[in-house]
Amino acid sequence: MNATGLVLGLAAALAIVGALLAVGLRNILHNILGFALSQVGLAGLFLTLGSDFLAVVLILVYVGAVAIAMVYAVMLSHPMDVAPVPRSRLKTAGAAVLALVVAAALWLLVRGAAFPPPSGPLEVLAGVTGHRLVSDYVLAFELISVLLVIAMIGAVMVARSFHGHRARTVGSAPAAAGAPAADPGVGAGEAAR
């Protein structure tokens, strides 16, 4: 019990410190590293709840995939040599106060609520979860896979179509490329009327 409490405290501290780094630091790459740290802490919290499979999936997906994808997006998009303009102190204080008020209200709500005690001992096995995933919740499981395929194809399409657009406009004169693109649209609209 004491060891569990120690792990809980450590994981909670990791999650919160990582989140603070992810939000507070100015360098976007440091933000991403803080985010990964926070997800590792969150996985530790899941581990103390007996959800070992969930913890592994969280680390694989967030630290292994999402954080790396974010680094790629930063390298493709962020101008690293331009220093960010500091936010005005008034706006910083306003955001902090508003977030604090929302968090305090949520905490009061949670503290006041009466939660029923657990119906049985804490026993979570990856096998039970996996069995439920392919029996009771098979529809949600399949929909998630469809969603992931659509998201993957959509991501490729979105990232590519703009590239093609730019290549076309760079190839010909920008003004000449814009005018023929607008004309068929107007003509089609008038023909429909």
């Binding site: 992810a22 977030a99 604090l100 949520l106």
Partner: peptide, 12 residues
Amino acid sequence: VLFGIGLCGLML
């Protein structure tokens, strides 16, 4: 706490 930090970052 995590939700509050995230909300603050989203606004900031």
